[in-house]
């Protein structure tokens, strides 16, 4: 069996749309549909998710055609994981540990996503940037965040 389609953009586009549309359709089945004249809360979601599934099928078929465009170009798994992760860390720290730890965590972790990561430089930069943000956001703009939870 030829598995070349697994490398094609359109195939995966279709899969993505079918998954999203199908999932939404599954959830929306519980919403009252109504009629075209008296639309219930389910009318729009069902119509839209069904359309997404149809689009998905179209793209999967396109992707199965020989000669469809392939996924190309380089990408970094490290960046894909580390960059969103740094935001998650910020979200977890800001309420629990305070503004300064959250900022340092965000800046240092996100910087690690780069292949060009230089530890000392990033540490210095994170301190500088955090200090600047404290001045601008906390002192000047008066955002109501604790700098370090429980202490400041």
């Amino acid at each position: 069996m030829n598995r070349e389609f697994l490398e094609r953009k359109d195939f995966w586009s279709g899969v993505m749309l079918i998954v999203v549309g199908g999932g939404a359709l599954f959830i929306a089945r519980n919403y009252q549909f109504g009629t075209s004249l008296r639309m219930g809360p389910g009318y729009f979601p069902v119509m839209l998710s069904a359309a997404l599934v149809l689009f998905g099928v179209y793209f999967v078929l396109q992707g199965l055609r020989a000669g469809a465009e392939k996924l190309e170009g380089s990408w970094s798994l490290r960046a894909l994981i580390v960059v969103p992760l740094s935001l998650v860390v910020f979200g977890l720290l800001i309420d629990r540990a305070g503004f300064i730890p959250a900022m340092l965590g965000l800046i240092i972790i996100s910087a690690m996503a780069s292949k060009d990561f230089r530890l000392v430089e990033v540490l210095l930069f994170s301190v500088f940037l955090t200090a600047m943000c404290v001045v601008v956001f906390i002192w000047a703009l008066g955002l109501p965040y604790e700098l370090i939870a429980g202490i400041w």
Binding site: V83, S86, L87, F90, A102, M103, L106, I107, I108, S110, A111, A113, S114, D116, F117, R118, E121, V122, F125, S126, L129, C133, F137, L143
Partner: peptide
């Protein structure tokens, strides 16, 4: 860029 993008992340988050 290795320093610019963490800064963008910081401003986005705040």
């Amino acid at each position: 860029y290795r320093l610019l993008f963490p800064a963008i992340m910081a401003f986005s988050a705040i």
